[in-house]
Amino acid sequence: MFKQILITLIKLLSLIILICFERVIGLPWLFILFCLIWLDENHEQLYQWPMLLVVLSLVLASAYHLSWPLAYFLLLAANTLLWLVGYQIKNKKRRFLAVVIMTNLFLLWWLKLKVGYLASAQFIVSYVLVVLWMRLFSLEKRWKQILKVQ
């Protein structure tokens, strides 16, 4: 239990640091991606999931000067969209990327942000980071399988 709380706090802290970094540059690409992953991980939890949604939306609203209900419904919509497009896009990675891009496009329109040199650079860097992270994750899984077989 204590370990779980500690991991949750570390995750939340790292997300706060990430959103502060992304707030300065432009849009919350990685933040929304990690939020969706975290929410997806806790999909089965009845009470924990809405609580997580509330906390993450508060962080998003605080960083981007959004209204809290809007941030809440935005994350909820993104999460629901993830589930709904599951029938169209079978690949989970692509599904996540599509939803993150859509959510960020909505934020771009809502916050009236300008797409400049920094925002474009941020998108490219975030995309490369996500791809690298996914590759490393699959490599780690493969290595674990190999080690298990041995």
């Binding site: 508060l58 809290w68 209900p69």
Partner: peptide, 26 residues
Amino acid sequence: GVGLLLILLSFAGVSNNLTQWGHCQL
């Protein structure tokens, strides 16, 4: 229910205060 509560809090001005506080902390 939580969404509804947040909307009510927003109308009451509480959620704005909370987000402002969060922004100050960040």
